[in-house]
Amino acid sequence: MPLKYQQVEQFLLYQLKNGDFKEGDKFYSEAELKKRFDVSSATVIKAINALVSKGLLVRQQGKGTFVSRARRGQLVKFFDREKDNDADETVTVLSIKRESDPRILAELKLTAGDSYYHIIRLRRANTVPVQLQHTYLMADYFNPIALKKPTYYESVYERIRQDSGIDLFSTQIDETTAIAFPVPAAERELLQLENAQQPAAFIRRHSYLFDDTVIEYVESYKRWDYFEIQIKTV
């Protein structure tokens, strides 16, 4: 499980990136954070210092902590546009297994003898299978309830937020997208691609905690006719 200061830091980062505070705004005081999260001064200071080191907050002697006016880079948002925005979407958890494949262990920065949980989910839009997702989740963040109730992980990010207090929508990631051609036979069958000549978008993503620990590694295959990316600055 994440340390308490990491949970506090994750929550504060979410608020900063979600626009709850504007540049130059006065931030929470140490006393406010201690009361809000029921933690010690040391925990609060550690979380705040982490955000200061990232250039998101600045301390002013005798005045308090403020949201930084400086930007270390232009923020952008990626929008995965759908073919049909009004589609009725469903997610099915196909399987959940504990594994220790050396290739995936390397992606998760784990070593031989470690293990992780492999969650396979299929997303449909109006009954059409559009995306097959392999989520490889660190064992420390997996809830064993799902072994008896796979539907528990229909929304992986929502469950992690509820179980661990970590919002993966606001954590650091690296993501690459390529064209898979030919698509592996098992994925092609589940996506109901008509023949081996049809490609798919192949998306790889790592999500990181603030100490650069990889919490999840994801490999997704998405039907070519349902894939489109839009990028906007924020």
Rank of each mutant, 00 (worst) to 15 (best):
M1N: 05
L3V: 04
K4A: 15
Y5S: 11
E9M: 10
K17P: 01
N18C: 01
D20M: 09
E23Y: 10
K26A: 13
Y28D: 05
S29D: 11
L33Y: 03
R36A: 15
R36Y: 03
S40I: 08
I45R: 15
I48K: 09
V52G: 00
S53N: 14
G55V: 05
L57P: 02
V58D: 11
R59G: 04
R59N: 07
Q60C: 02
G62S: 02
G62Q: 03
T65C: 07
V67Q: 01
S68I: 10
Q74N: 11
L75E: 13
F78R: 07
K83H: 04
D84T: 08
D84P: 04
D84I: 13
D86Q: 14
D86R: 12
T90D: 15
T92P: 00
V93K: 06
K97I: 01
R98V: 02
D101E: 13
A106T: 13
E107V: 04
Y116P: 05
I119G: 08
R121K: 15
R123K: 15
P129S: 02
T135N: 15
F142I: 00
N143G: 03
P150M: 08
P150R: 07
T151I: 08
Y153L: 08
E154H: 09
R161Y: 14
D167N: 13
D167I: 03
I173H: 11
D174R: 12
T176A: 11
V183Q: 11
P184V: 05
L190G: 09
L191N: 13
Q192V: 00
L193E: 11
L193M: 06
A196S: 06
A196G: 01
A201D: 08
I203M: 14
H206Y: 10
Y208V: 08
L209E: 05
F210D: 04
D212Y: 03
V214T: 08
E216Q: 11
S220E: 06
Y221E: 05
Y226E: 11
F227A: 13
Q230C: 00
T233Q: 12
V234D: 12
